[in-house]
Design a protein around this nucleic acid. Structure first.
Lengths: 330, 330
DNA sequence: GGCGATTGTCGAAGCGCTTCGACAATGGTT
DNA sequence: AACCATTGTCGAAGCGCTTCGACAATCGCC
């Protein structure tokens, strides 16, 4: 009667080779003759050997696990989060890595725990804010990381995000192409701008630059998230600028209220998940949040770093506009 | 200049005790005097020591990680999945465990990989079907597991699920209380019944039993998921049974079409995520899918097993009906 | 046909931790 | 005053793997 678990020593004995030979067959780090390799593989299969992850990580100082740190807070659009997580897992698996799920509410301590304890080789941190308290921790950690979102100081970090600047711009271009001459951006709530959140400002800048380039009259307003305030904001805008016919909305929670508050013949373009845009009637023309692409890119970048590479510090994914029923010619 | 990582030996030296003493301070498995304990803790903090997870798992044969196996396929309601995952992580953390995210598309091999390789101490497998190929694998694995969903043969397993039987019943009770005399259940697509999927049958049985108990006339129909077929099904039902006034819908994808196809004065009760029920107008009275409760329970059960306990084989969560605008007196 | 390179394999030294048995120093009982 | 328990600590033996240096066997080349 054997012991419970099959070890590499059992495989070596069964195949009539040394333990190190088995290890080299597995890792491919030294040349092993084809016949030996075949014999070892046969023994592995015959015994049902699975290397002990802990032993491996202890000896090699690599765990083949990456951490995925997800925000827990309300307001995050759950489907997008899930799509992102799925993409990360799928992509990591294709690089022979597993994914440890960590929630952001553990804060910097959580990052330290999994990184310093050598549970993971690297981290992907989603939804990083401008002055995120985790950024300094990430910097001093000995393990590489990739951030989704753009902190204030990204020097020495690797970040991926949707190019909100261009996203704002292509919304304007779309409206301009349709013949609109006066356009407005309804963005995040005022507090979000005040705490200097990256994506809100980037969208606004892109929006304004494109409007200037296309010779449009442009206005931007923060946008609260309750129906009444939204209606008041929209009404005030329309009253003051009767020529306004095109709206860009960058606020998931408010977009429904905006659509309800606007006259039917105005055009709306949103920056929001496709899933959300399709739910409205008329369906919203929108720039999607490319969750899967973000996940894939983040993993690729992290793998590059794990292999000693030095990828670009900033990766900005190009925005894609899907035209639906909410925008039309003027 | 020290080496990169702080080890337990460094802590021992710094505190002037032996390595084993530090280990016992950490695990509490032997009594250590208060003064020594304090000294060790001070050294741990001073040096920023984090035990090496791999070394720990190798020596103790426990990884303090559990696997969460999530379905990837379309049709799963993403927000529910995410809520569930979040609950599992939060709950696992409160038991000092981490969570490894595995996707179901790896199949039985994925389970074997993480379990046999000692990456995880136990597994939570979501969305188990009646004849799930992973069930035999789970049975022969040396690690405990908890299933969400009910396979055909649950002997020797630990399963948690919503009590769909009672869910079907309370929908009927609700409609009966409102004065409806003829009710119909629109369930999963026909193929789902044919492949003997557990929850579909359980709901139907509960529905029929309750109807009999309350003396209602009851019909059940499978329900496809495209608008045209749904309308045809509904129209046929209403034509044949003009007295039908109450509908129970257990089909997330079809419920929108059902609502659109039914006359305004019929009552609808759905079995679906709250998030979905609230999105309709009028909002649907519904029995929610208790994602968070399922996650918490699953972790609790798994922890019980990891500690040598033997929890109940079947845990059926009681359904909760939220009355909204879609159901009214007849 | 002799010599350096290359190829294939082995043995052993760790990696950082847990845990077992040993044992000195106490304390409480007769 | 002699004894047995209890308490607190230590040393050492692994846990299963990777990796380094060593070395025998084979190869290619002048």
């Amino acid at each position: 009667m054997k012991k419970g678990v099959v070890t590499i020593a059992d495989v070596a004995r069964h195949a009539g080779v040394s333990v190190s030979t088995v290890s080299y067959v597995l890792s491919g780090k030294r040349t092993i003759s084809a016949s030996t390799r075949a014999r070892v593989h046969a023994s592995i299969r015959a015994l049902g050997f699975h290397p002990h992850a802990g032993a491996r990580s202890l000896a090699s100082n690599r765990s083949s696990v990456i951490a995925l740190v997800l925000p827990l807070r309300q307001g995050m659009h759950l489907p997008v989060l899930m799509q992102f997580a799925t993409a990360v897992v799928t992509s990591a698996r294709s690089h022979h890595h597993d994914v440890l799920l960590v929630t952001a509410d553990e804060g910097p301590a959580g990052l330290r725990r999994v990184a310093a304890g050598a549970m993971v080789d690297g981290l992907i941190v989603m939804d990083v804010e401008m002055d995120d308290p985790r950024v300094p921790t990430l910097r001093q950690l000995a393990r590489p990381s990739v951030l989704i979102g753009l902190p204030a100081d990204s020097a020495g970090l690797t970040c991926v995000d949707l190019d909100f600047h261009r996203a704002g711009a292509i919304c304007v271009d779309h409206l301009a192409d349709l013949g609109h001459r006066e356009v407005a951006l309804l963005g995040a709530p005022r507090v979000v701008y005040e705490r200097d959140t990256g994506f809100a400002h980037r969208t606004r800048d892109g929006f304004l630059e494109a409007a200037a380039r296309r010779g449009l009259v442009a206005f931007t307003e923060p946008c609260e998230e309750d129906a009444a305030t939204v209606r008041a904001t929209v009404d005030a805008l329309l009253l003051k600028h009767p020529g306004l016919t095109g709206f860009v909305v960058h606020n998931e929670a408010a977009v429904a209220h905006v659509q309800a508050a606007l006259p039917r013949d105005t055009s709306i373009v949103a920056i929001c998940p496709d899933e959300l845009a399709e739910r409205f009637s008329p369906a919203l023309s929108s720039v999607q949040i490319p969750a899967e692409e973000l996940g894939r890119q983040a993993v690729d970048l992290l793998m590059t770093k794990l292999n000693g590479g030095e990828p670009a510090s900033l990766t900005m994914l190009p925005p894609h506009l899907t035209v639906r029923a909410s925008s039309g010619p003027h």
